[in-house]
Simulated assay, not measured.
Amino acid sequence: MTKVSLEGQVAVVTGAARGVGELLARKLSARGARIALVGLEPEELKAVAGRLHTDCDHWHADVTDHEAMARVAQEVKERFGKVDIVVANAGVASGGPFAESDPDAWRRVVEVNLVGSAVTCRAFLPALMASRGYFLQIASLAAITPAPMMTAYCASKSGVEAFAHALRAEVAYKGVRVGVGYLSWTDTDMVRGADEDDVMRELRQRLPWPANRTYPLGPAVDRIVAGIERRKAHVYAQWWLGGMQSVRGALPGVIAAVGQREMRRFGPRLSGVATGLVGAGGAADQRERTGHTQRH
Rank of each mutant, 00 (worst) to 15 (best):
A233F: 07
A226P: 01
H58G: 01
D197A: 06
V76W: 05
E43W: 00
A127Q: 14
A155D: 00
G272A: 14
A164T: 06
V12H: 06
V180N: 12
G50E: 07
W239F: 11
T275I: 08
G281C: 05
A127D: 15
R34P: 05
D285W: 10
R51M: 06
L37M: 08
G91A: 15
I138L: 13
V63M: 03
A93S: 14
F266M: 09
A211R: 11
V10T: 10
P126Q: 08
E7S: 09
G133L: 10
D65K: 06
L37N: 02
V12D: 10
E75N: 15
P208Q: 12
M200I: 15
E44L: 14
D222Q: 12
A280S: 14
D55S: 00
A147C: 13
D84K: 03
L125I: 09
A194H: 00
A99E: 11
H53D: 15
E111H: 00
S158E: 03
V119H: 03
G50R: 10
W240R: 06
R108E: 14
R287W: 04
G175P: 07
D285S: 04
Q205D: 13
I224F: 13
H234K: 14
G193I: 14
Q245D: 14
G242L: 07
R26W: 01
M200W: 13
V110Q: 10
A233H: 15
A283W: 01
R51I: 02
D55Q: 11
V278W: 07
V199C: 04
G218M: 04
V112L: 02
E202A: 13
S156T: 03
G179V: 06
V221M: 12
E7N: 06
A139Q: 05
G291W: 00
A16V: 07
L24T: 11
A250T: 03
E262T: 11
L183C: 05
Y215L: 11
A250E: 04
F163N: 00
P252E: 06
G227A: 03
L217S: 06
I35F: 07
G81I: 00
W239Y: 08
L114R: 01
L203F: 15
E7C: 03
A220L: 08
P268S: 12
G267W: 02
T214I: 14
R26F: 02
W240Y: 15
H292D: 00
A250S: 11
P126H: 05
A211C: 13
V221A: 09
A33H: 07
A47H: 09
G281F: 08
S156P: 01
V4E: 15
V191T: 10
I85R: 05
S94C: 14
H234E: 15
G193N: 08
V178A: 04
A16D: 04
L45V: 09
Q238D: 05
M200R: 14
T54V: 02
A280H: 08
F124S: 11
Y153S: 05
T120H: 09
L207F: 13
A49V: 03
A99T: 12
T2I: 09
D198G: 02
R79E: 11
R201N: 14
R295L: 09
V112E: 09
H165G: 03
V221G: 06
F80G: 01
D285Q: 08
Y182R: 07
R231P: 11
A90S: 12
K46L: 07
L23V: 05
A36T: 02
A118G: 04
V176K: 04
